[in-house]
Structure formats: structure tokens, C-alpha cells
Design a protein around this nucleic acid. Structure first.
Lengths: 132, 132
DNA sequence: ATACAACTTCAAGTGAACTTGAGGTCAATA
DNA sequence: TATTGACCTCAAGTTCACTTGAAGTTGTAT
């Protein structure tokens, strides 16, 4: 496979594939002239990277998971990411419900709606948790 | 209120408050010498900004919602953000469950676990949706 | 009166994740 | 054989949301 095909199959631009290589996330099995040649399993690796990104890992964190003898994924780390995701999900759910309500709330201004007010309170609190 | 107090109450560093002012998200009611003086309602505005950020709006988008005569929030826009959030939540939920499973899955390698495999598939598909 | 903590401005730096551009190479097709 | 298009490298640019630093000013407590 050349880079164009990997790009087509993965949905990632070639520039991103080269960038991932720079970041040690990826490695072609060889070259044909100048051109990169990839093994089919690059797609699984890309899927793994996509999975990591979706789960909220940075590229550097993901790179650190790839050891010479295949990915080594710490179960504790996974569990902690799962918990973190769980908190995010709760937040987003509250937010979605709030937005959905605000979108069809009859109050002339959102500020006159008590649900919206509650939502504001939640947002401010979550900010304080993140920072000060 | 001076910037220190707003910072304390909101949990945001003073530098961020000045930055928000630059971005036209915020405006002190005046100055006392050089120092910014804020009205108490700046906290509500900050809450609104935090809410927007939580909902996935960029600072520029949020700034655009603030008109001279108070925030004007488009209900259609809210609804569409809510739907978007909903999709994100579903994604994250699948991800969380997958991670949680992987974290305690007995298979020696995650690649030998069919749930994990399914998860990989999902991740790759969602990438293709975003890009190619 | 003086020290000093808390403010001020403005420019530049940060990090994450890419993208873009200039200039060059190469294999296949007309 | 000439040209096209897909690839190559490397440096620099981009966006987002801030943070940091240097150099200066001011309100307040002693």
C-alpha cells in the first residue's frame, strides 16, 4: 500500500500520516524509491490511534503506549480514562438537556428561565473545579 | 470589584479575564486609576461564557452571541448544538464502556478481545465520518 | 513616607494537532 | 519523449485558548 491508499482507506490526509510518523506513532514497512510502503496492519494501528483520541488521550500519550513489542496498554490507565469520560458524559448530558430546554423555552429571555439559571450555576461551578 | 476579586469568585486567572476582554467577551464598567472595576454581573457573564465553552462553542462564537443589548442566543443554534452534543455523548459512552471492558478484560492482549476489536472499528468509522 | 503587593500594558511564547508551500523526484501514460 | 500527477522533504504557518515576562504604576498598610 502506498500513502494514497492508506489515506483513502483511513480517511486521513497524507500530511497527517506523515505527521504521525514524525511523532513516532506510525512506521512504513519500507520505501519504494522515495515512496512510503505500508503494511495492511497500519489500518489497525490507525484505528487504535483514533480510539485513543476519541477517549481523550493526546498523541504523545498514545505514542508512549506503543512499545517495540506491540502496544502496551495499562489497564489502570484505561480505567481512569473511563472514569474521566464518565464525568465528561454527565456534564455534557446536563448541558444538552439544558440547551434543549433553552431552545424551546417560552421565557422571553433565557435569563428569566430558572432552568437556564441553574445551568449557568453548573457551568460556573465546573469552571471553579477546573481552576481555582 | 477589582480583577482579583472577580478572579477569586470565578476561579479564572486575571490573565484570562484580560484575555477575554481583548476578545470582546468582557468589559469592566470602568477604571479606578489604571485598575479595572467590574460590576457584580460580570460573574453571570462569565458563567454564560463557561456554559458556552462546555457546550462546545469557541470563544469567537460566544463573542458573536453578545450584542450591545444583551446576549442574543439563537434557539436554532442551541438546538443544533444540543444534537451535536448528543452524538458526542453516544460516542463517548461507547468509548467509556469499551475502555471499561478493556480495563478488566481477561484476554492477554486487547487485540484478542472481540469487544475491543469492535471498538477499534467504531473509532475508525467515526474518523472517516469526520474526514474522507 | 515608604515599602510592597497587586495591579497595568504589550509582545512574545506555549502546546496540541495539523496544514501549507516551495522546490524536488519519479513512474506511468499519451 | 514529454508531461502529468502522485509522491517526497523541510520549514514555516495556523488556530485555539491561554500564559509568561519585562517593565512600569498605584492603593494601602505600616
Amino acid at each position: 500500500m502506498d500513502i494514497g491508499e492508506v489515506s483513502r482507506l483511513s480517511g486521513l490526509p497524507a500530511s497527517t500520516l506523515r505527521f504521525y510518523e514524525d511523532k513516532k506513532l506510525l512506521k512504513p514497512i519500507g520505501r519504494k524509491g522515495l515512496r512510503r510502503v505500508y503494511d495492511a496492519d497500519v489500518l489497525q494501528r490507525l484505528a487504535l490511534i483514533a480510539l485513543g483520541r476519541n477517549a481523550g488521550f493526546t498523541l504523545n500519550e498514545i505514542a508512549a503506549m506503543f512499545t517495540p513489542d506491540g502496544p502496551r496498554i495499562d489497564r489502570t490507565q484505561l480505567a481512569s480514562k473511563a472514569d474521566q469520560l464518565d464525568r465528561t458524559i454527565r456534564q455534557l448530558t446536563a448541558m444538552r438537556d439544558g440547551l434543549r430546554h433553552a431552545a424551546q423555552c417560552p421565557a422571553p429571555s433565557h435569563f428569566e428561565c430558572s432552568k437556564f439559571q441553574r445551568l449557568l450555576g453548573v457551568a460556573l461551578k465546573s469552571q471553579r473545579r477546573r481552576n481555582g
